[in-house]
Design a binder for these strands. Structure first.
Lengths: 215, 215
DNA sequence: CCTCAAAATCAGGAATTCCCCGATTGCAAA
DNA sequence: TTTGCAATCGGGGAATTCCTGATTTTGAGG
C-alpha cells in the first residue's frame, strides 16, 4: 500500500517539480496538490492522505493555520512543514499546530524522503539545519513570554488579520468566510485593540514582521 | 547537441526538483547547479552553458547583478529569470541586466521548457502572467523612467504615500501638509491608480519594498 | 511672454467603513 | 455552576473612502 501524499505550496512550478520527484519513489503516491490553505483542507477531506507536505507561506489561509485545522479534523494525518524560514517562531508554531516534521527548502531532496519515512512511524522529524536552534531555545528561556501574533490572537483573528493584510475589505472577508460583515468588523477592532494598532498600514507591517503575510 | 543548462537557486530542494524534471527532456542537459551568485558565475565560466535559469533572490550576489555580470562576460549566454516576484521593478531590472526571459515560479513547468526553446532562438520570453503588466507600463509611462516609486510618482505623491503607510489617515495628512483632505484623497487615488493597487495593505507592502517606509 | 501639460489643489454626493454600544451562543476550565 | 473567552451578529451615527468632476499653479519650450 503506497504512502498517499498531498502537496501544498503556492508556487506551481515548485509543487510540480517536487511532486514529480516524489513519484519516482515507488512507495509514494502524490494524490493531490493545492496552492492555498482552503484547497488543501478540501483535498485532505476528500483524499485522506497519509502525509501532507505543507509550505508555510500561502494565500488566504497560511500553512500553520491550515495544519491546525487538518490535525483537528484528522489527528492521524501527518503534516511535514517545508519552508524557507528557519526562525524559531515558525518552527515552534508549526509543531504546536500539530506538525510531525519540519524541514527547509534548502535541504536536499532525499531529506524529504527520510522525513516521510520517519513521520509515518509516528515519530517527529526535525531537519538538522534547524534542530540546533530548536534545542538552544528549548534549553534557554521559554517561548511563552513572547508577545506575538500566535499567542495574543485567536485563530479566527489571525485568519482575519491575514486576509486584511492581503488587501481584502471587511466585506470581501465576510463573503470569503461566509459570516456577517459585522463579525469581521468586531474581529478587526479586537485585533487592533490587542495589538494597540490603529491603522491598516501598521497592521500590515506587523503581519509582515510576524510572517502572517508576505511582501 | 543537447542544450546545456545551469540552474541557480538558493533553495536546494527546489533546484534539485526542477533539475530532475528538466533532465527528463532528452535535448536538455543540466551541466551545473549553484546556490548563490558567485558560484553561478564560476559555473558559467567553466561550463559555458547555453542557458542559465536564475532565481532573483540569492545570497551574496542577487540574480539581477549576477545576470549583468554573466552577460558582460558572455553575451551569448541566455539567462531566464525564474522568480516568485511579479513586480515590474524586478522584471524591468532583469531585462535591463540582459536576461532573455522571465517567468514566475507560479507557472506550470512546461512553460519553462517553452521559454528555453524560445530563448535559444535569440528571442525574448515573457510569461503571460506578467506580460500584461509589462505592456501596460510600457504603453503608459515614458521610457526614460525606471519602474520604481521615485519615477512613477511625483514628489507630492511620494510624500503622501509615505505618510499613508506610516498609518496616518487622510485627515491627519491634510493637517500635517496644511492642505484639504480632498486633495489628499485625490493623491491617494492617483497613487493607487498609477501603481494599480487597491488597498492600503498592499500599498504598505509596496512602500516597504521600495524603501519609502520601514517595518 | 505665451502656451500647454502635468502637478497640485479642491468639492459634491453616494457608498462604505469605522466606532461605540450591546447581545447571544457555545464551550471549557475552575 | 459559574466564570470567562471565542465567535457570532446588529443598530445607528460619525467618519472616511470612492467616483466624478473642476480650478489653480508651475515649469519647460516655443
Amino acid at each position: 500500500m503506497p504512502i498517499k501524499i498531498i502537496l501544498a505550496d503556492d508556487h506551481n512550478m515548485v509543487r510540480q517539480a517536487i511532486s514529480a520527484l516524489l513519484e519516482q519513489d515507488t512507495v509514494i503516491e502524490v494524490v493531490g496538490e493545492a496552492a492555498d490553505g482552503q484547497a488543501t483542507l478540501e483535498l485532505v477531506r476528500n483524499s485522506r492522505p497519509d502525509v501532507v507536505i505543507m509550505d508555510i507561506a500561502m494565500p488566504d489561509l497560511n500553512g500553520i493555520e491550515t495544519t491546525r485545522r487538518i490535525i483537528k479534523e484528522f489527528p492521524d494525518v501527518k503534516v511535514i512543514a517545508l519552508s524557507v524560514h528557519s526562525e524559531k517562531k515558525f518552527v515552534f508554531q508549526m509543531f504546536k499546530a500539530g506538525a510531525s516534521g519540519y524541514l527547509l527548502k534548502d535541504c536536499i531532496f532525499e531529506e524529504l524522503l527520510s522525513a516521510i519515512q520517519v513521520v509515518i512511524k509516528n515519530q517527529i522529524y526535525i531537519s538538522p539545519k534547524i534542530s540546533s536552534s530548536v534545542v538552544r531555545d528549548y534549553l534557554g528561556q521559554s517561548v511563552k513570554n513572547d508577545f506575538n501574533a500566535f499567542s495574543v490572537l485567536t485563530n479566527r483573528e489571525r485568519e482575519v488579520l491575514q486576509l486584511l493584510t492581503e488587501g481584502k475589505t471587511a466585506k470581501q472577508i465576510a463573503s470569503i468566510l461566509k459570516i456577517s460583515v459585522k463579525t469581521i468588523e468586531t474581529h478587526r477592532k479586537q485585533i487592533m485593540d490587542k495589538l494597540n494598532i490603529r491603522s491598516i498600514a501598521e497592521l500590515t507591517k506587523y503581519a509582515v514582521r510576524e510572517g502572517l503575510t508576505s511582501l
